[in-house]
Amino acid sequence: MAIDTIWSYPPQAAHVHGLDLTGFTVVATDGTIGHVDREADHFGMRHLIVDTGVWVFGKSVLVPAGVVTGIDPEGRRVTVACSRGEVKAAPRFRIDSETMDPDYLTSVGDYYHRLPPREATTA
């Protein structure tokens, strides 16, 4: 995945313009990671803030749109091309203002860009 596409939904994700993903379940390659709390697009860096519930001690994680491999509107499910451990190891999301910090977003994008490529899946 090219670094410049980490912030854009890939074609296979079939993201419908205007579709609100809030509340959708987010599923990694090895299980559920949480639910979409909200979407954001700051500085052209589209991403999801995912509420992990108790899985990561009640924390949220930031997932770039380019990691999404599928969106199932009827099943209210988003699949991502990484494992739960890879999501958990991403740069820690602490406060909402970090989504407005281009340096933080760049570090997250760099992290996900360096992950091994995975086959696209359907939701």
Rank of each mutant, 00 (worst) to 15 (best):
D103R: 12
V56C: 12
S97G: 13
L48C: 00
K88M: 03
T52K: 12
T29C: 10
D51H: 09
D37C: 04
D41H: 06
G53H: 04
F57V: 02
A120Q: 09
V27F: 03
H15T: 03
V61C: 00
T69M: 08
T22F: 07
I33M: 15
L62S: 15
P11L: 07
M100Q: 04
A123E: 10
D72M: 13
F93R: 03
R84V: 11
G109Q: 04
T32V: 10
F24S: 06
H17C: 03
V67W: 03
S107G: 01
E74H: 08
T32S: 08
V108C: 05
M45Y: 05
A65N: 09
T29I: 09
P73N: 02
F57Q: 13
A40S: 14
V26C: 10
T79H: 04
D110C: 01
G75S: 15
H35L: 01
R77E: 14
H47K: 05
P102L: 02
C82T: 06
D72E: 14
F24W: 10
Y112L: 07
P116W: 00
T69D: 14
A28N: 12
G109D: 06
G18S: 10
G58W: 09
C82E: 10
K59Q: 10
L48H: 00
G85A: 14
P10E: 09
D96K: 11
P10F: 10
S83W: 08
I49D: 04
R118N: 13
L19Y: 14
H17K: 15
A2G: 14
C82D: 06
G44T: 03
I49N: 01
G85R: 09
C82N: 10
D37F: 13
I6A: 12
W7Y: 11
S83R: 14
T25C: 05
M45V: 02
T79P: 00
S97E: 15
F57D: 15
T106C: 01
R114V: 00
R118G: 08
M1Y: 14
K59N: 12
D101W: 07
A120C: 01
H15Y: 15
P102I: 04
T79A: 11
G70H: 08
W7A: 09
V63A: 07
A123R: 05
F43K: 11
H42M: 01
D101V: 00
R94C: 01
Y9W: 13
F57P: 01
A89V: 03
K88V: 01
C82I: 02
T121C: 08
Y111H: 09
Y104V: 08
V63G: 08
H15V: 04
D30K: 05
F93D: 06
R84D: 00
